[in-house]
Design a protein around this nucleic acid. Structure first.
Lengths: 222, 222
DNA sequence: GTCTATAACCGGATAGAC
DNA sequence: GTCTATCCGGTTATAGAC
């Protein structure tokens, strides 16, 4: 109850904003609508959120938290690597489905250098780190042994992969997102196969090249 | 010389717009500036370009054409697969370098479903098709034999890859884009290795799974 | 029917008074 | 912290000129 008046106002703004986003989408929701619905003036809304984009970040966080909440129970029931990856991805699909109508706009920041959704965005961003964390858990709890060198890079790679799936899903107009589901099924199988194959000595030189590349990619995150 | 008055006006608008983009970037260039520089009214500028984004498409086309022009002579001098891929990618880097300052804004459409730069954008778009064509040439002229099934999918995959490199480059603040250059070097080597490995019988089942996936990805392009 | 201009709208963002 | 008044730039409506 230590919430100051300001904190409560801020919370109220986020709340109505997310509701409006769900109802009308991001673009169709104006800052004026948000301000009015929250019972504050336009200028005052900007006092709390310096830009409309910052409100969108609140949306990402909500989606992320719903994703974690949806994925955990599924993970508890799966031991195979492929099953666990599938669970995480399908949970994501479930959570974002209500936003599909507006997804193009709401996820366009995925390519924006300033956005945490951008896979190349410099580190320090909570949402991406927590997303990677979820994949780390999916890997750690699986019955498949993942080589250590690979294990260090995989969460980050899988997070990037998941962003690619979201990008695909945005364009998927099929009933029940059938197409995206199929792509997820095929890709999680492939990823699991690739991880298992990676121990094969024939591929050793190839594998170490890939790892070296992946490690080189990182410093952009500073 | 059949250029009607309207065509000439349109051309003039594109011309000054690209110049202003180069000088100030996309966002800082206003439609009012473009109109004034082209010597037309604001409303008239909109008669020719229904949106600012359509002017940006003209920019993409120019960049693409410069890329092809820069890549062709390099390709003429390279026979190895790795050399040819490298040539195409480095030519790209050369061409886009002048826009690095503003790249975040100018390339943000890469994730926009409506943009031809989006790798998942439905087919029918010239620029992406021509980009794939360039990679098809790079492959066709190389000394490496590419399995037919793979050859059909590769141009499209390589184009997507090149978009990923651009996304990386956008975030690359290093001197001379050293980091991106290194990533290109490593990735073209990996790609060439992977193509060669793909003939290995041990990987046959893996390879066919990958190809099946890639083919499945396509129909989104309708 | 092709082209051009002026005025206005709309929504994100800011300034500055209280 | 809150407001009102404005700015600014993309976009549109619309009227008229060639």
């Amino acid at each position: 109850m230590a919430a100051s008046k300001g904190e409560r106002t801020k919370e109220r703004i986020v709340e109505v904003a997310l509701e409006l986003f769900r109802e009308h989408g991001y673009d169709a929701t104006t800052m004026r609508m948000v301000a009015e619905a929250a019972g504050v003036s336009l200028g005052n809304a900007y006092y709390y959120f310096a830009s409309k984009d910052l409100l969108l970040q609140a949306f990402y966080r909500e989606v992320h938290e719903a994703h974690v909440a949806a994925a955990r129970p599924l993970l508890a029931a799966e031991r195979t690597l492929v099953g666990r990856l599938r669970a995480v991805m399908l949970a994501k699909l479930e959570v974002i489905e209500p936003y599909h109508r507006f997804s193009a706009l709401m996820f366009r920041s995925a390519a924006d250098p300033e956005s945490p959704l951008n896979p190349f965005h410099p580190a320090g961003d909570d949402i991406r780190r927590e997303g990677e964390q979820l994949f780390a858990e999916a890997l750690a709890g699986s019955s498949t042994k993942v080589p250590k060198a690979l294990a260090a890079e995989l969460p980050n790679l899988l997070w990037t992969y998941s962003m690619g799936i979201v990008l695909y899903w945005i364009h998927d107009r099929t009933e029940g997102r059938e197409r995206t589901r199929k792509v997820i099924e095929r890709t999680v199988e492939l990823i699991a196969s690739a991880i298992k194959l990676s121990s094969n000595p024939l591929l050793r030189p190839f594998q170490s090249k890939v790892l070296a590349l992946v490690r080189d990619l990182q410093p952009l995150r500073e």
